[in-house]
Nucleic acid binder design. Structure first.
Length: 601
RNA sequence: GCCGCCGUAGCUCAGCGGAAGAGCAACGCACUUGUAAUGCGUGGGUCGGGAGUUCAAUUCUCCCCGGCGGCUCCA
C-alpha cells in the first residue's frame, strides 16, 4: 500500500510540521530549552533554540530518534485560538519568554486580539507539544517520510536577526518528500564540497593564504595570476573595442574624497584607515569611483569629448568582519574590473547597452548559460538609505527599465537592492550544480555627479550636469574566480588553463621526439608541462588528471615513427592519435577562438 | 564581531596525561614503462602561539592567532 508521495505544495507543510517535531523532541530531551521560531527553508527547515547547555553534532542521532518516534506515533495537529492575554499567561507559565515577546509584537504591530496555537496530539489523545503558529501543517506526522530527513548542522543565529539580541542555536534539518530526494540533495552538497574553490585553489596551485599576511588577503601564485590576467585581458579586449581607455589611480586617499562622495559617512566602519606621520587621515580605497571622478574633473570637458570611458582593474580594500570572510568569495583585498563612463544623460542608454553586450559575450564565452537579469531599485520607504531625491531615483529607474524592456530582457525587479547612489542592472549566473550567483553589474549614478560637480560644456556653452555609469564585468576577480572554479570544477576551457598541454614520453628513447614537440608547442605560444619518463606512465597520467591539464600527450615508438601524438582529453576522458601538425593547428585555433571544450578527443 | 566546532610533517588524517605516527608528496637508488598510484630506502614536526594546573601537557584550563559552519553585514 504505497502512500502517494506528498505534492510539491505539500512539501512546505511537511517541512513546517517537521520543525514542530524537532522542537518537541528537543524539549523532551532538554526540558529547560527556550523555543523561538522554526520556518521551512529551501531544502528543509530549522528551529532556533536557546539551550541551557550547548549541544553538539553528537546529539543529532538522539534528536533524530526522538523525531522519528513522534512521526511513528502518528501525532496529529489541533488548532486553538487564544486571547492574547491568555496566550501570554500560558507561555509565561511555561517560562518561554521568546513566545511572549512574539505575541506582544503581534499585538503592537498588527493589532491582533487573538493568536492561533497548534497542539500536537499523541496516541492517547494527550497534548505532547504546543506552539504559537499560523498553521499550514500536514494532517498526521505519519505523513512525513521518516527516512527523508536528516539534521545537517548547528549554527548560531541572533534572535530576530538582531546582533544586539540573544544568540540562539539554530538546528538545520534537510527534509524532502522521499529518501531519494534527500539523497540527491546530500549528494549535491557532496559535489559542492568536491569542487570547493578553496580545495581546488590549493590542488591546482592557484592561490594561497598566509597567517602572517592575514585573513581575507589572498596571495595569487603564478598559475592563478595567469588565469586572472587571461580573463582580465579578455574583458579589456571587449572594452577596448568599445572605446574604453585605461586609467591608473593610487590605492589610498585623503578622507576628504569620501566625505565628498558620501562613502565616509556610510561605510566608515569598513575603511582601513591610515594616519600619516604628520597626523593626516588617509584610508585604503574601498572602491574606485571617487578617484575616477577626479580624472574627469582634471579638465574642462566639452560635450564633444563625451563619453569619457575609464577602465581599470585594481585592488580595493575593505575591513570586513573576520566572521564574514570566506575563501575568495568574501575577502579584504579584492580586485575589481571596474569601469566608469562619464556621459550626458542622453548618451546613457547607448552606453549601458554596450556594457550589456560585453557582459553577455563574456559570460557566454567563459561557459555560463544565459544570465538572469535583476533591476535593483531603491526602497521608497527607506529614503534615508540613499543619496538624492525621490524624483531623481524615479527618473533613473524609469530609464533603466526602459532599456531592459527595449532590449527584450527577461528581468525581475528588486526594490531595496539599489546602491546608495543609484539603481542597478544586476546579472545573475547559474552554475553547473544549480546555484545562483550575482556577477556583473551596471549602475546608473545620478548622485556622484552632483556631489563632485561633474559637468560638461554643452552646445549652448552652458554647464550641463552629466551622469556616471559604473560597470564591472567580473565584479571582483576573487569572487568571480570562486564561482568560475566551482562551475568548471577546475576543468577550465583550454584558452584559460594555466597549463594547456602535458608531454609524456614513454621511455628515454622518446625524449628526443618529445622535446621536439615541446619546442614546437612553445613556439606557437602554448603552455606546456613536461613530465619526464622517470615515473610510470600511469602515475604521470594521474598527476596530469589531478592538475586538470586539458591535453595529455603520450609519445612512444608509434608516435615518434609517424610523427603523431596520442592525445588524452581530460574533459572527455577520450583518447585519439592525431598527426602532430594537426594537433598544433587545431589547438592553436581552439585557443584563438576561446573554445569551451578542447576539440581533439 | 557573535554562537558552535576545529588547528599534529608540504597535503589528508590517526593518537589525547607517561619517549610524536600513517598514507600521499619530497629526496636517493633500482626499474625504461602504452593511459588514474612500480619497488626499496632516506629526510622531514619547538603537535598554531603564550600562560597556567601537574612529578610529567600534543593531550586538561585560560588568553591570543588562524580555519570551518552559520548569524549579522555587503558600496
Amino acid at each position: 500500500m504505497n502512500k502517494a508521495a506528498p505534492q510539491v505544495d505539500d512539501l512546505h507543510k511537511l517541512r513546517h510540521s517537521l520543525a514542530h517535531a524537532l522542537a518537541q523532541a528537543v524539549l523532551k530531551l532538554w526540558p529547560g530549552t527556550k523555543i523561538t521560531i522554526g520556518p521551512p527553508i529551501d531544502y528543509g527547515c530549522y528551529y532556533d533554540f536557546l539551550f541551557e547547555t550547548p549541544i553538539s553534532d553528537a546529539d543529532f542521532p538522539v534528536i533524530e530518534k526522538e523525531m522519528r518516534k513522534i512521526i511513528h506515533q502518528g501525532q496529529t495537529f489541533r488548532s486553538e485560538t487564544l486571547k492574547t492575554s491568555d496566550a501570554k499567561k500560558f507561555w509565561n507559565q511555561r517560562k518561554q519568554p521568546f513566545k511572549v515577546e512574539l505575541i506582544e509584537d503581534l499585538v503592537k504591530n498588527e493589532g491582533v486580539k487573538t493568536v492561533t496555537h497548534y497542539a500536537n496530539i499523541g496516541p492517547k489523545g494527550e497534548e505532547t507539544f504546543v506552539d504559537l503558529c499560523r498553521g499550514g501543517h500536514i494532517e498526521n506526522m505519519k505523513d512525513i517520510p521518516a527516512d527523508a530527513f536528516k539534521i545537517t548542522s548547528l549554527a548560531g543565529a541572533y534572535w530576530r536577526g538582531d546582533e544586539k539580541r540573544e544568540q540562539l542555536t539554530r538546528v538545520y534539518v534537510a527534509a524532502f518528500a522521499s529518501k531519494k530526494e534527500l539523497d540527491e540533495y546530500l549528494q549535491m552538497m557532496e559535489e559542492a564540497k568536491r569542487r570547493d574553490h578553496r580545495k581546488l585553489g590549493q590542488e591546482l596551485d592557484l592561490f594561497t593564504f598566509s597567517e602572517l599576511v592575514g585573513p581575507g588577503l589572498p596571495l595569487w601564485t603564478p598559475r592563478g595570476t595567469l588565469l586572472r590576467d587571461l580573463l582580465d585581458g579578455y574583458v579589456w579586449e571587449l572594452r577596448q573595442a568599445r572605446g574604453y581607455q585605461r586609467v591608473t589611480i593610487p590605492h589610498i586617499t585623503k578622507k576628504e574624497l569620501y566625505e565628498t562622495s558620501g562613502h565616509w559617512q556610510k561605510f566608515s566602519q569598513e575603511l582601513f584607515r591610515i594616519t600619516t606621520r604628520e597626523g593626516h587621515q588617509f584610508c585604503m580605497k574601498p572602491m574606485n569611483c571617487p578617484h575616477h571622478t577626479q580624472i574627469y574633473v582634471s579638465q574642462q570637458r566639452s560635450y564633444r569629448d563625451l563619453p569619457q570611458r575609464y577602465a581599470e582593474t585594481t585592488t580595493c580594500y575593505r575591513d570586513e568582519q573576520t566572521g564574514e570572510l570566506h575563501g575568495l568569495s568574501r575577502v579584504r583585498s579584492f580586485t575589481q574590473d571596474d569601469a566608469h563612463v562619464f556621459c550626458r544623460r542622453s548618451q546613457a542608454a547607448e552606453e549601458i547597452l554596450k556594457i550589456w553586450e560585453i557582459v553577455d559575450t563574456f559570460y557566454a564565452t567563459v561557459g555560463f548559460g544565459k544570465l538572469r537579469v535583476r533591476l535593483s531599485l531603491h526602497d521608497p520607504d527607506a529614503m534615508e538609505k540613499y543619496l538624492g531625491t525621490p524624483e531623481m531615483w524615479q527618473s533613473a529607474e524609469t530609464e533603466l527599465r526602459k532599456i531592459a524592456i527595449d532590449r527584450q530582457a527577461d528581468f525581475s525587479e528588486a526594490p531595496g537592492e539599489a546602491a546608495f547612489y543609484g539603481p542597478k542592472v544586476d546579472f545573475i549566473a547559474r552554475d553547473s550544480i544549480g546555484r545562483e550567483w550575482q556577477v556583473a553589474t551596471i549602475q546608473l549614478d545620478i548622485n556622484m555627479p552632483e556631489r563632485f560637480n561633474l559637468f560638461c560644456i554643452n552646445e549652448e556653452g552652458a554647464e550641463e550636469r552629466i551622469v556616471m555609469i559604473h560597470a564591472a564585468i567580473m565584479g571582483s576577480l576573487e569572487r568571480f574566480l570562486s564561482i568560475f572554479i566551482e562551475h568548471h570544477a577546475g576543468l577550465f576551457p583550454l584558452w584559460l588553463a594555466p597549463v594547456q598541454v602535458a608531454l609524456l614520453p614513454l621511455a628515454d628513447i622518446h625524449e628526443h621526439y618529445a622535446h621536439e614537440v615541446e619546442t614546437m608547442l612553445k613556439n606557437v605560444g602554448l603552455r606546456i608541462h613536461y613530465m619526464d619518463h622517470t615515473e610510470s606512465l600511469g602515475k604521470r597520467i594521474r598527476e596530469g588528471e589531478k592538475l586538470r591539464i586539458p591535453y595529455l600527450l603520450v609519445m612512444g615508438d608509434r608516435e615518434a615513427t609517424d610523427r603523431s601524438v596520442a592525445v588524452r582529453n581530460v574533459q572527455t576522458k577520450k583518447q585519439v592519435t592525431v598527426p602532430l601538425e594537426q594537433f598544433v593547428e587545431r589547438t592553436v585555433k581552439d585557443v584563438q577562438e576561446r573554445k569551451l571544450v578542447a576539440s581533439i578527443g
